[in-house]
Structures are given as structure tokens and as C-alpha cells.
Amino acid sequence: MGEPVITCEHVTYGYTGEPVVQDVTFTLGKGEFLAVVGPNGGGKSTLLKLALGLLQPQLGRVQRALEWKAMGYVPQRAAAFDVQFPGTVGEIVSQGLYRGPSVSSFFQPWNTPPVREALETVGMWPYRHRRIGALSGGQQQRVLIARALVRHPQLLVLDEPTEGVDPALQEGFYALLRRLNRDQGITIFLVTHDVGVILKEATRVACVNQRLVFHGPPSDLSDVHLSQLYGVPIGLVEHYHH
């Protein structure tokens, strides 16, 4: 494992008294591709927000070795924005280049080379003048990924990024994540319900259902862990995106 990027130690958090995440301890090392899986309401997204620092643990502690500017975040699309929001694709992606308050920020053009590069990476450059609310779910997700990539992050944190995305486009998306992780060395923290991803792409797996049921390489993950995670017998079948 590379040097720690995020360390969670005995982290507990609840929104209304009942813990959603309880006594979770794990470390995300540099260059790893961590997939967090678990049932709906099992605390995956809460754990992600705790790891990012968007929520503060009620018990335990979280340490991050990176500054904000070294992190890229792709939220769950459904919760990301108001459809009325008038920002264009180009403007949204250029937000990722934020460098602090300045009078010039109002006058700066958004169509800079890094914005173009990020939009081309996700195949959304032709849509740069469109309002983000006018795009399909999968296109909006790609714009948010470009917004995260434009700052050349060392850590990419994604919350259910393929939710609502056409299955045919998912393979391309995972291929992009694979490239970013293996070729560019970007550490990835992915919350997903797609168990297939963890077998094919991830280097580490965390199974969370309030507590951490399993944390380790995918090769060590067994049917027993998944059955324990979902509360029903589950057989592990490797699947590939075509």
C-alpha cells in the first residue's frame, strides 16, 4: 500500500441519534482504487462525506493527507443541482479551477485549454455552450467528472457515478477510471452498488452496512462477506461490460 491519503479511525456518525456509520476503521493508500459497496441506507455516502470532510465524525477521527485543491469530487447526480441552474457546461467545468476570491473571476473566460482538455476527455466538448440542466443524466455525470478532472486531482472521490447512466455507456466510464488510476496514478475512492466493478477494476474493497463488514483486496472477498453485507445469500459471479 502506498502512503496513506485518507485514514478513518473508529469513525461513528448518525443524523438523528441512530448511527448510520459505526466504528469504521480503514486506510486509503496512494494509488489505490477503493470501491465501497453496501446496501441502500448502509452508510456508503455518509462514509464518503466523512472521508472528504463534508461531515465531521461524532466519534473517532479522519485524517486527510491532501489539501482541497488536490481532490476531485463527483457527487450523486440527482442531488447535485437545481435543473433551473443557468450555468453552461463550460462554466461548470471551469469552476473546478477555483483559486480564491478575485474581482477578475467575473471577467475571466471559461474556455481555457484545461477546460477544453477535461471536456474532451469525457467527450463533452461539443456541448460546452449548453445549460447543464438541458442534458441527459449520463451527460450531466460526465460534466461533473470533467469538473473534477480539470484540476488534475491526486484523489478522485465518486458517489454512485453510474446511477442513471445508460448501461452501454458504463463500460466507457469505467475504462476512463481505469486509465486515470493505472496510467496517471490517481487514487480513486468510489461508492457504488455495482459489485461487478469491484472484481474487475478495484484494488481494494470496503463492504459497509453501518459497520465495516470487509476491507481488503477483491480476491479475498467471498460469498460469505456479501451475504453478510446484504443479509441474503449472494453468489459472486464475475461479469464484464461489453
Partner: peptide, 14 residues
């Protein structure tokens, strides 16, 4: 603009 668009995204952008 960023806080109006999405406060969590804005926070992670610094």
C-alpha cells in the same frame, strides 16, 4: 456561483 450551484462541490473546491 459555486455555493449556489452545489455547496458540497464548492466546499471540496476550497
Amino acid at each position: 456561483v459555486q455555493t449556489t450551484f452545489d455547496p458540497d462541490l464548492a466546499r471540496v473546491s476550497g
